[in-house]
Amino acid sequence: MNTDTTETSDDEYDGPSKSQVKREMHALLDLGKQLVELPNEKLKQLPLSENLYEAIRLAQRTTSREGLRRQVHYVGKLMRHADADAIRSQMDIWLNGSREETQALHRLEIQRDRLLADDEALTKLLAEYPNADSQHLRTLIRAGRKEIQHNLGLQPGQDPQRKHFRALFQALKALNDSTEHE
């Protein structure tokens, strides 16, 4: 008679632990809570099933605290069947902006600073964007330079002027956006 008490490999469970499953469910519940806080326009842009979308909308309309808690838990349950990674990715882009957008804005800031510091930068910009309104850009650069000079003389605690500084940035952004859409 064999009294071997070692378990065979058939009896071992190799799936996720109970704790891991619980962490994943809580993560989906948290994501569901974030979805409930989103405006309807953004919800429509996400890859949500009809059931999940309706459950979120119902949670948004629920005024009772306990009813809202139950509805959010139901949304979390429905999230198990949703593409959570795609939803998280889109929400991250909304929250932080995409890296490409951030890099593009940094390039525009650098370009604005060059324009304010050096007249040659405008010549290079106009060569790159021949359809740009050179007179408007010159006016913004001149006003931005005056603003910088004014801000240098401010006392501590006084707010600097940034109107023309921002206007120049917006003009560069509009110029950049117009060439991307062509």
Rank of each mutant, 00 (worst) to 15 (best):
A132R: 04
K173V: 12
I93K: 11
A143K: 14
R112T: 06
A171F: 01
Q20K: 08
M25L: 15
N96R: 14
N176V: 12
S19P: 00
E101P: 00
L38Y: 08
P156W: 11
I141Y: 04
A117M: 00
A27W: 11
K42A: 07
D83P: 11
H26P: 00
G97L: 05
P130E: 11
D85F: 07
E37C: 03
E66M: 05
K163P: 02
R112S: 06
E128S: 09
P16W: 10
L78Q: 15
L48D: 03
R23T: 08
T179N: 04
T6H: 10
M1P: 13
D30R: 14
I56C: 03
S17I: 07
D83Y: 11
E109V: 13
D159Y: 05
L137Y: 09
V21T: 09
V75I: 12
L140H: 01
S17H: 07
A171G: 01
S9G: 05
L31S: 04
N131M: 10
S134A: 13
T3M: 07
L168R: 04
E12Q: 14
I148M: 11
K33Y: 04
V36Y: 04
E66F: 01
L95P: 00
A132Q: 06
R88L: 10
S9T: 13
Q60M: 00
I110Y: 01
K163G: 09
H150C: 06
R107D: 09
R65I: 08
L46R: 05
L43F: 09
L38Q: 14
R162K: 15
L126P: 00
G76H: 13
N51Q: 10
A104V: 08
K42F: 04
G32Q: 05
E128F: 01
A171Q: 07
L43T: 07
A132P: 02
T8F: 08
L115V: 13
A59C: 02
G76P: 11
N176M: 13
A27V: 11
D4H: 13
R112D: 02
P47L: 15
M1R: 15
I93D: 09
D118M: 01
R138Q: 01
D11S: 15
H164S: 12
A132M: 08
A86P: 01
L95H: 12
S49Q: 02
L168A: 05
L115C: 12
N151P: 06
T5R: 05
L122D: 00
A59S: 07
A171C: 02
G153P: 02
D85R: 10
S9Y: 14
E37W: 00
E182R: 07
T6E: 06
L28W: 08
K163W: 02
M79E: 01
D118H: 01
D30Y: 06
I56Q: 02
M91F: 11
K77V: 11
L43N: 07
A104M: 10
R65M: 04
S49H: 03
L78M: 15
A143Y: 08
R142V: 01
D92H: 09
A127Q: 12
N40Q: 15
E54N: 12
Q158K: 13
Q45K: 15
N51F: 08
E41Y: 10
D30M: 10
P130G: 12
D30T: 13
N131A: 14
Y129I: 11
L168H: 03
L172M: 05
R65P: 02
H73Y: 01
G144A: 09
K146L: 06
I148T: 11
T63C: 08
D83I: 13
Q158C: 07
N2D: 14
I148P: 00
E7F: 14
Q149N: 06
L175C: 04
